[in-house]
Design a binder for these strands. Structure first.
Length: 460
RNA sequence: GGAGAGGUGGCUGAGUGGUUGAAAGCGGCUCCCUGCUAAGGAGUUACAGGAGGCAACUUCUGUCGAGGGUUCGAAUCCCUCCCUCUCCGCCA
């Protein structure tokens, strides 16, 4: 979420930055709404202060009446409210008591009036506040000043390459290799669930597990804390990281509960510290989480229908940082390097592409995509997306840090480290051999317990 | 799922309608003392948010698990919910 203050104080800046993303918003309206909320809150607080003063005065008057009444007639002194029997008093004393009684009564009346007024203002304020929030929750993050401007993905900028991409000699794509090697069941998975689900078998299942464990081990050895979060998350969690309210059609929802299948570990990891204030000395907090990810992939009919590239359910190892706002730029570079380390360890060629403003995800202000070389298909394919979200998710989720006496929103960053299925695809295509087998890269051999994946001796 | 107990400040723990944002103790911080010395003394110390100021800060609001209600006024009374603990049931 963007800072409501920005809309009050510098609406033109917001409009200009959003237009870099190719977004035209009615900034004047938002500016007015933000100011209105502010004004209502101010007036409400003033009135509340007056109400508070008055009820204290009532207390004071009551005490006086009780003291005086008590002197005249001890058994009346502790009478509740103003119902003192002032007839026991005479002359001046009686007048004094009558005056006090009237004063108390009028204060009570005034208090009631203020109470009603406050209630009315509160209702207005709540209404305006939630409207503003609804509007703000649908606006994407502002792009970083470093983010290259662009109109579409063609304007993304290649930053660097690692390794030497070359077409595979045998030239099979991963789904072809998987078929000969018996790594997964395509048709039978439709029977179990539907299309875009996969059932890994034999060495395929083993390889998936090996990759997950290899990546977790690599990252934890680089001082990430391992997390295994819930796969079902509530609406607040999805809103906090930016998937809701705008992208509801992208996630699977449980019909009878306020729960959704998590589309990425980024969601539960953001929610891990929701409504918390972390000591600045604790930052950065770096987490690595394995999780299955569930996505509806609405609007991608017909694309990547074969193999492991685009599935409703896939596995991913995710890197996540909570960091000091002044340190997030370096953190972004480090996080990206940590994701790259996986590809380097597996000796898979890749390139780093920086997304332009038009291609930036909703919550991100700057993103590096890692694209791994698919030797069989002969293309680079996104395998990781490393983003810094600035304070965008932190504001949505209310995650702050305490530095000295001040509380500040911290920054969050996330990146795949890596998507398991796509890693397997790249690995199969890169390490395929003319005889149809696939060599296991050295780093993975301890996890696989073999050096080469060969077709089953007795294929079905 | 059933029964019971409980949720108060960094911690322990008082507090059943009126300057109570909250006693006391512990802890923290500041200063003093340094022949009462594995100490002693004085003072200070909740949190969050808004507005204003370059800032030290000022000011307002909210907060005693959460949300409603009663009242001029609620930690305190009423309702709903959540969480924790114990026991029973069920279960991987």
């Amino acid at each position: 979420m963007l800072d409501p203050r920005l809309f009050r104080q510098n609406p033109d800046h917001v409009a200009a930055q959003l237009s870099r993303r190719g977004l035209a918003v009615n900034i004047g309206e938002l500016h007015d709404h933000a100011r209105q909320v502010q004004k209502l809150a101010e007036r409400r607080a003033q009135l509340q202060a007056e109400g508070k003063r008055i009820s204290r005065q009532v207390g004071g008057v009551l005490r006086q009446i009780n003291e005086k009444g008590n002197k005249l007639s001890p058994e009346l002194g502790s009478a509740p409210g103003f119902h003192v029997n002032i007839t026991v008093a005479q002359g001046q004393q009686r007048e004094d008591l009558e005056d006090l009684y009237q004063l108390g009564k009028s204060l009570e009346t005034k208090g009631s009036e203020i109470k009603e007024e406050v209630a009315a203002l509160e209702a207005k304020e709540r209404d305006a506040q939630s409207k503003l929030r609804d509007e703000l929750l649908r606006l994407p993050n502002l792009p970083s000043p470093h983010c290259p401007d662009g109109r579409d993905e063609a304007d993304n900028v290649e930053r660097r390459r690692w390794g030497d991409p070359k077409p595979a000699a045998a030239g099979s794509e991963h789904w072809q290799l998987a078929r000969t090697l018996g790594l997964f069941e395509s048709e039978r998975s439709v029977r179990i669930a539907q299309s875009r689900f996969i059932t890994l078998m034999g060495w395929g299942a083993r390889l998936e597990r090996a990759l997950i464990q290899f990546m977790l081990d690599l990252h934890t050895s680089r001082s990430y804390v391992e997390v295994l979060p819930p796969s079902l998350v509530n609406t607040a969690s999805l809103t906090g990281s930016g998937q809701l309210p705008k992208f509801a059609e992208e996630s699977f929802r449980c019909a009878d509960d306020d729960l959704w299948l998590s589309p990425t570990a980024e969601v539960p990891l953001t929610a891990l510290h929701r409504d918390e204030i972390l000591p600045a000395t604790d930052l950065p907090r770096r987490y690595v989480a394995y999780s299955p990810c569930f996505r509806r992939e609405a609007g991608s009919y017909g694309r990547d229908t074969r193999g492991l590239i685009r599935l409703h359910q896939f596995n991913k190892v995710e890197l996540y940082w909570f960091c000091h706002p002044d340190a997030s730029e370096e953190a972004h570079e480090q996080l990206t390097a940590d994701a790259e380390a996986v590809l380097q360890a597996l000796e898979l060629p890749y390139r780093v592409v920086e997304l332009c403003t038009a291609d930036l995800g909703f919550s991100a202000c700057r993103t590096y995509d890692l694209e791994v070389w698919l030797a069989g298909a002969g293309v680079y394919r996104e395998i990781s997306s490393c983003s810094t979200c600035g304070d965008f998710q932190a504001r949505r989720s209310s995650i702050r840090m305490k530095e000295g006496k001040r509380n500040r929103l911290l920054h969050t960053l996330n990146g795949s480290g890596l998507a398991i299925g796509r890693t397997m695809a790249a690995l199969l295509e890169w390490y395929q051999q003319p005889d149809g087998s696939v060599a296991v890269p050295q780093a993975l051999q301890p996890y696989m317990g073999c050096t080469v994946i060969t077709p089953p001796s007795d294929p079905e």
